[in-house]
Amino acid sequence: MSAPVLDVRGVVKTFGDTVVLRGVDLSVGEHQVVALIGGSGSGKSTLLRCASLLETVDDGQVLLDGEDVTDPRVDADAVRRRLGVVFQAYNLFPHMTVLDNVTLAPTVVHGRPKAEVQEEARAMLARMGLADKAGEYPDRLSGGQQQRVAIARALGVRPRVLLLDEITSALDPELVGEVLAVVREVAAQGMTILMATHEMGFARQVADTVAFLDGGVVLESGPPEQVLGDPVEERTRRFLARVIDAGRL
């Protein structure tokens, strides 16, 4: 395997007295899909926020294409330009149309010609089944539609890696499928993805690696069949049992 696109090394993150991450190691190779699983409060979102430089780490490093992006000397804006982030609550800009949401970063941040970006954005929205929604405002869309727009927005900047933070957790069960279908297609096209998720079935189908986060460290990681089917660690076993009880697997 070539050098990882995203390499997390010994990342520590505390909030006051609470230690959320106590030395997380994780790497995501080119065209790889890594699924982060773990109980709520296990630090999945915090890890993604550290990777997207929305939080400073308290120790350890995050490398993006071999560059230490946790070095305070790097231009964080320049790093974020190479990342795509999709949030649990969509975070679309409510005062802009769907098309403007998607074309904002490519035009304003990357300075690409508007006509070209719009054409590309329309094509992308069409692939996601949102061709007729380009002129709508986000509040008029369903959660699943909004989340698909958010994915389109994140992909609009052609990121090196796509970070997905529990993107289906706020959705009705019947809308989860349409969003996951989009992620599946994006993964199939070779996008490098790190996703925090509660959808074990989806992780099993799409992920190359599943990492179980517990007690602030990656307790166990490996191919989905192994981690989800025959976990080594007792805690992983117990976590999966709880998930199965809840009917999510």
Partner: peptide
């Protein structure tokens, strides 16, 4: 950073690395 007065579950953090 507030001093860790109580040892959090999982033990105290190791001392910060030279890098940090």
């Amino acid at each position: 950073r507030p001093q860790l007065t109580t040892v959090p579950p999982g033990g105290a953090l190791p001392a910060p690395s030279p890098l940090e």
